[in-house]
């Protein structure tokens, strides 16, 4: 029975069906399934499949966005149960944005969605984000990662400014800094002292997970 519910929940996420996702979340509560199991074996299982299909271009960005909305809807139903059970989710907060001077945001949106799909709590600051705004938000939400993206080579120096400003404020070791975007290369990311780089969304998620693991050790 519980497997049927969890599979139904995963399926609702894959289809981006908000109503069905809510219905299955309610059924999971009625069946008294541990909310952590509901999250991992239902919601995340569905989102994992969505990520995989997107990476293979079987589905596209709108479908990923719909799946993320369905997951949000299911979580809103599960939330009281989560609080009641005092299930503490692993802290994986990430502040992300397209850095100063650049208004291109699809790449960043894709990465933000894939991070959400992989269980991160994502604070998306949008586009043309001033360097200090990343830091302010990270401090406010107590994030672990700051991720900056750009499609413009002339906005890349602002990424360097971000790292320098963290150093100036004595905050560099507090945050994992990741960079990415069209003209950004792995070598350049390392040269400015970033901790991680993603050639594409899939790599960004993998690197973010790995860096968090390393940081915790």
């Amino acid at each position: 029975m519980s497997e049927e519910i969890l599979n139904g929940l995963a399926e609702a996420i894959i289809r981006g069906d908000e109503e069905k996702a809510k219905e299955m979340a309610k059924k999971a509560i009625e069946a008294n399934i541990d909310p952590l199991i509901v999250i991992n074996n239902g919601l995340m299982k569905g989102m994992q499949k969505v990520s995989e299909d997107f990476n293979k271009l079987i589905i596209y960005l709108p479908e990923v966005m719909m799946a993320a909305e369905a997951m949000k809807a299911a979580l809103s139903i599960l939330e009281p149960k989560i609080l009641e059970k005092k299930v503490k989710e692993e802290k994986k907060k990430i502040v992300i944005g397209t850095i100063q001077g650049d208004i291109h945001d699809i790449g960043k949106n894709i990465v933000a969605l894939l991070l959400k799909a992989n269980g991160f709590e994502v604070y998306d600051l949008g586009r043309d984000v001033p360097v200090d705004e990343f830091i302010k938000k990270a401090e406010e939400v107590n994030a672990e990662i700051i991720a900056a993206s750009t499609l413009l080579s002339t906005s890349m120096p602002y990424m360097e400014d971000l790292i320098n400003l963290l150093k100036e404020r004595g905050l560099r070791d507090k945050y994992i800094v990741m960079v990415g975007g069209g003209p950004v290369t792995r070598e350049w990311a390392m040269s400015i002292g970033a901790d991680g780089y993603g050639e594409d969304g899939e790599e960004a998620v993998r690197v973010a997970k790995e860096l968090i693991k390393v940081k915790k050790k």
Binding site: Q100, G101, D102, S153, T154, M156
Partner: peptide, 21 residues
């Protein structure tokens, strides 16, 4: 292509160096 560094200075978007570049 364009220039991202001009006379040894990194060009930042929407700054006077963009004019120079």
């Amino acid at each position: 292509g364009g220039l991202a560094i001009v006379e040894g200075r990194k060009v930042r978007t929407n700054t006077p160096l963009e004019i120079q570049a």
